[in-house]
């Protein structure tokens, strides 16, 4: 079964390439029982959103 180190690595890679079905399934099982990795996944999305949203030159008021 996948551990947290492997799960976080996959969540990072998910931002670089589409995960295989097997990887997606294993990740899903892991995050179902692991709140730490669940948070990690959301935080990766937030990090990307923030860094990309932060520097848009013409944010509307």
């Amino acid at each position: 079964m996948m551990n947290c180190q492997q799960a976080t690595r996959l969540m990072s890679e998910a931002q670089e390439r589409p995960l295989s079905l097997k990887e997606q399934a294993e990740l899903k099982v892991h995050t179902l029982i692991c709140s730490g990795c669940r948070q990690f996944g959301q935080q990766m999305l937030l990090l990307r959103q923030l860094t990309r949203g932060a520097r848009k030159p013409d944010d509307p008021d």
């Binding site: 551990n3 947290c4 730490g36 935080q43």
Partner: peptide, 22 residues
């Protein structure tokens, strides 16, 4: 990695990600 994860590759208790209020 050793500082974050134990020998089984699970989060050390103190390092486990917490909910962020953003």
């Amino acid at each position: 990695d050793d500082q974050l994860f134990d020998e089984h590759g699970h989060w050390h208790k103190a390092e486990r990600p917490q909910r962020w209020d953003a």
